[in-house]
Write a protein that binds this DNA or RNA. Structure first.
Length: 294
DNA sequence: AATTACGTCAACCGCTACTAT
DNA sequence: GATAGTAGCGGTTGACGTAAT
């Protein structure tokens, strides 16, 4: 059934809105409220169709619209809700005060979706994309045995990969954490901290155990809401958790960081850029340290 | 400086769901 | 129940700005 579009009439303007048109629409709605979009354009003196007016109001002119970049928490909420609701943008928008469905949809399509794809995560199912996993290279590794392979099932956890993705998104944080870890170990052993590129690539089986999401990662991801604080404070963890001490959380997150090379192996799409970033950062860091020592 | 490629986002289009008659 | 009108949703487009070459 349906009916012909309301914009077929001649004389109806399309395209970007002018400030004058915005003013007319705002003034009309302030007096009469956003009702009867069909008659509104005529009553407000606008050469637009009602649909266009409604869209302009709901997506741009509404006074309660929040402008500017999406916060880390908002992004987390969008990803979580999308994993449950799919492309129900209006439902997702209802959970994010001040954000419109159009804005969230655009943000998803231009940023989040691409990032997930880049990190080997299917943006529809939120699961790892098997087509980008180079499983044959894993099977050929001498360190892989049956028990290791069985444990991969739990390793290929969307949450774990999502955490890896978010870590990759912030290489500065990753580097800072690695440096902190190095420094701490060096202080303990009273030796100069120097990065060893393959430090974390040894003892593969042990890393698998460390990386098991049923142990370390849930603890780390359960603190995802605090990640913005982590970003801001570079390792200064804020915690009011009743279950985990600050130190435990740091340990868990360190585990997650140290597991990154393993994630690299598993997330084919993510690995190259991550390796490059880390390699550059490490080189820079070592040079800086040497400068300071001199 | 000019051109091309890419990213962003406001706005449009087509469709469906809901409501009134 | 059938039909028509309306609001709203999600996919897509195209203009614009910026970065890369």
């Amino acid at each position: 059934m349906g009916r012909s579009p309301c914009c077929e009439k001649n004389g109806v303007k399309k395209g970007p809105w002018t400030p004058e048109e915005d003013t007319k629409l705002i003034q009309y709605i302030q007096v009469h409220g956003p009702c009867n979009w069909r008659t509104l354009p005529k009553d407000a003196g606008l050469q637009r169709c009602g649909k266009s007016c409604r869209l302009r109001w709901t997506n741009y002119l509404r006074p309660d619209i929040k402008r500017g970049r999406f916060s880390f928490e908002e992004e987390e909420t969008i990803i979580q809700l999308h994993s449950v609701l799919g492309n129900k943008w209006s439902t997702i928008a209802a959970r994010l005060p001040g954000r419109t469905d159009n804005e969230i949809k655009n943000y998803w399509n231009t940023r989040i979706r691409k990032r997930l794809l880049r990190n080997g995560i299917d943006p529809v199912t939120h699961a790892p994309r098997l087509d980008v996993l180079d499983l044959s290279s894993l099977i050929n590794l001498p360190q892989i045995n049956l028990s290791t392979l069985l444990r991969l099932q739990t390793l290929l956890n969307p949450e774990a990969l999502r955490l890896a993705a978010s870590l990759q998104e912030n290489p500065e944080l990753l580097l800072a954490k690695l440096e902190q870890h190095q420094l701490f170990n060096a202080q303990l052993q009273n030796q100069t901290p120097v990065f060893q590129t393959n430090q974390f690539e040894n003892n593969f089986d042990q890393q698998i155990a460390l990386c098991n999401p049923s142990t370390a990662l849930p603890a780390a991801t359960s603190h995802s809401n605090q990640s913005c604080l982590i970003q801001e404070n570079m390792g200064q963890f804020s915690t009011n958790s009743e279950n985990l001490s600050c130190q435990t959380f740091q340990d868990n997150l360190t585990t997650a960081f140290e597991s990154a090379p393993l994630m690299e192996t598993l997330c084919h799409g993510a690995s190259d850029q991550m390796k490059k970033d880390l390699s550059e950062k490490k080189k820079f860091s070592v040079l800086e340290q040497r400068k300071q020592q001199q």
